[in-house]
Design a protein around this nucleic acid. Structure first.
Lengths: 429, 429
DNA sequence: TTGTAGGCGTTATCAA
DNA sequence: TTGATAACGCCTACAA
């Protein structure tokens, strides 16, 4: 039995194109299937016949089929469908082509097109993890890509440099038109990445390249987020806003952690207060993350102060910490938000599923994904024109090299005091 | 001053060679693609020269280059590199091809290959949302695909049937080899999906197709997960295990919710108890989700019982509810886990970031993704040979049509009593 | 304005 | 065993 290699992708009934006329064509068909075709003509026959048959059977009509059906040439079909040179096509042929194409249900073969034009409409996405924020960025990127006719090829490197290198090779083989790299911190282990030559490269929250010629990137702004949170608390009438966070040396000296601290400090000082370190809790640097527990510890620290010095507002560097803070406060009989208002960060599902619901800073990773794609498309379309040889290269409004996503504060119950509470001095615990 | 930003696609190399000659992709690159080439030789010249030049400059060497360098034919190169017909290649040519290939850094052009073989190594992934569990499934799928040399093209349909249809068209255009659809509930709006003909289709947590001939799928097992949780609580010595969940008509009659309730009921009954509806809390069906608040409400209900009838263990249908339950218990001065043990579901980051950490059932969505890919690969290789026409179709060990992922209980502080507590009657609140 | 023809890089067929 | 040679489906100078 000719049970050799499987029938590849083809769906049912596809007698081989040109089976050696003696070898009983279709390999799978048990009995029958007599060599009805050809019989006499054998190989001397012009290929036209076999071709035609074959084409008939192939489910997807080709451009040639359309041309044939419309009574025009392939060129006309191509011109009409790609929309280039619209002036070189008469309205009549245009109509006929369109009609034939829709009638046959023609869809151009992207593989062939890509082979010819050297552009796939694929962009590679390299992510080091799949944590929530990254998933959000991926979602935004994919959505934006989709809207522009691009598709996204996802590669997760699990923080491994080896995997990253392999993924890059892989994506290069796929001939993606561009690449986006997203990571939560900024490891900047630039080794393999910097060698990317397959097209434009946009980074999300990661730096790469020499100081004077860095790669274009999109970054989320944790500093601004923290400022938003603190300013909101102050606007709500809080006068002693505390910080519940992480030691700056912890978590691999995470940039995002440091930025939140700076934002807090700036906002407090800008409002005319000085930073009171008794209102600041840093989790020990050994901790591998901060959550509920650290929130509780923060409250313990704050509660050890004399009552009049205790905070009336808390900014927590993430929603888990905020939940811990709230839990500990409530347990101590302190009301939230009336006595102490609390704001978290990241706007995770914890914030909305908690009770009371937690106000939180949304870093808008999804928007970061969208922006990254926009930037990539811009680079894609301007890649080949502006060699500095020829004076002012592109037109104006070139997007800046590094784009910042503005965070947004989502106000919920945990920080929303009644309106009259705005009077100063109201809710000291 | 040429604004830096672009690192155009071409790596710095490409010395000399006037930039224009044909290649350089980007056909739409505005402006003049002047006929620089011609110069002296004009068009009469045999193309060989131009070709050679062009090839030289082309970054990626082709199979022809390798053949040329090795002094063999393209056929030999193809055979050697694809590994087929190993017997038809002499050891010597084999070596020379390999040597030349590595020396030139040859990488086959997947586009050309796909065009010819009609197989991309791409599989499409249709997801209706990007919530955490889906992201996990995607991660697992992508990882497994990667290990098998496949890549994943992600399409997010945002629950929209229209988008889903478009995405399917898109993926069909891309000629993906197969398709995986992942959703959290089972909407089974099969309209467009059932018409998929581009290759095998595997569903994750979704049913499709006629009852008697459903599509292959992978499902997570919430019933089993609930059983695990309850059995664990019983084994810890709990005698009155409560259920904190959602009205079965709520959330669009979510299958996953109903399964958890059934698992709870089965486990309780199987242990010889009868289900006490006073120990069961169903959130009102109008709620759009369950979280902390519903956990608190559950505890309120339970606390209204006479002390000896109150639960000593609670299974909550997700981690948010569990957190709410724990919070309310602690606030009431009830110890967790000593007085009441609590188990959540989904093993989200809430469970591990909470304090005390929450025991939770992991539904292993990541594994579901992996399994889906395995199943798809199986179908890919067995798709077209076993039409039941010919008796016992394939060989044995065909995977079952629907595969179930076994959940796993992750035990943490919220349910881990001291060993001696195992004695019955210990921790009634 | 339309048609003809050559090539993108592979794989696969068929003589030599 | 190896080497021409023809597709795969599309794009696009160039000639008609």
């Amino acid at each position: 039995m000719g049970k050799h290699h499987l029938r590849s992708v083809d769906p049912p009934a596809t007698p081989e194109s040109h089976p050696a006329p003696g070898s009983a064509g279709a390999p799978e068909a048990a009995g029958g299937n007599a060599p009805v075709r050809s019989s006499a003509t054998s190989k001397l026959d012009r290929p036209s016949r076999a071709k035609e048959e074959e084409r008939q059977r192939s489910r997807r009509p080709t451009g040639r089929d359309v041309a044939h059906a419309a009574g025009v040439s392939q060129t006309a079909v191509s011109f009409v469908l790609t929309g280039v040179h619209p002036e070189k096509i008469s309205e009549q042929t245009r109509k006929r082509v369109l009609e034939a194409a829709t009638r046959l249900g023609y869809r151009p073969n992207r593989l062939a097109r890509s082979l010819r034009t050297r552009r796939t409409s694929a962009i590679g996405l390299l992510s080091s993890t799949m944590e929530t924020v990254v998933a959000q960025a991926i979602s935004g990127l994919q959505e934006a890509a989709w809207e522009s006719g691009y598709h996204v090829i996802l590669c997760n490197t699990h923080q491994s440099a080896t995997l990253e290198r392999q993924a890059l090779d892989f994506l290069a083989d796929l001939q993606v038109d561009g690449l986006v790299v997203v990571s939560t911190s900024t490891p900047s282990d630039n080794q393999a990445l910097a060698a990317w030559t397959q097209g434009p490269l946009v980074l999300i929250n990661r730096t790469l390249g020499p100081e004077d010629a860095p790669f274009p990137r999109v970054i989320t702004d944790y500093r601004e987020g923290a400022r938003l949170a603190v300013e909101h608390l102050l606007a709500q009438g809080c006068q002693r806003v505390a910080f519940a966070g992480m030691d700056l040396e912890g978590l691999g000296r995470s940039e995002a952690v440091r930025q939140r601290w700076e934002g807090y400090r700036q906002a407090v000082q800008q409002a005319g207060y000085s930073v009171d370190m008794r209102l600041v809790y840093f989790a020990p640097r050994e901790r591998t993350g901060v959550g509920w527990r650290e929130g509780v510890e923060a409250v313990e620290k704050f509660r050890s102060l004399p009552p009049e010095q205790q905070p009336d507002g808390v900014y927590a560097i993430n929603d888990f910490v905020a939940a811990g803070v709230i839990g500990a406060l409530l347990q101590a009989g302190i009301r939230v938000p009336q006595d102490v208002s609390v704001v978290g960060n990241d706007n995770t599902s914890v914030a909305s599923h908690h009770y009371p619901q937690i106000s939180s800073v949304d870093q808008r990773w999804q928007e970061a994904g969208r922006m990254a794609l926009r930037k990539l498309l811009y680079l894609l379309s301007h890649a080949y024109e502006s060699l500095p040889a020829d004076g002012a290269p592109p037109s104006g409004e070139e997007p800046s090299l590094v784009e910042v996503v503005r965070p947004q504060l989502v106000v919920r119950q945990s920080s929303l005091r009644r309106v009259e509470v705005n009077a100063p001095g109201a809710g000291t615990s």
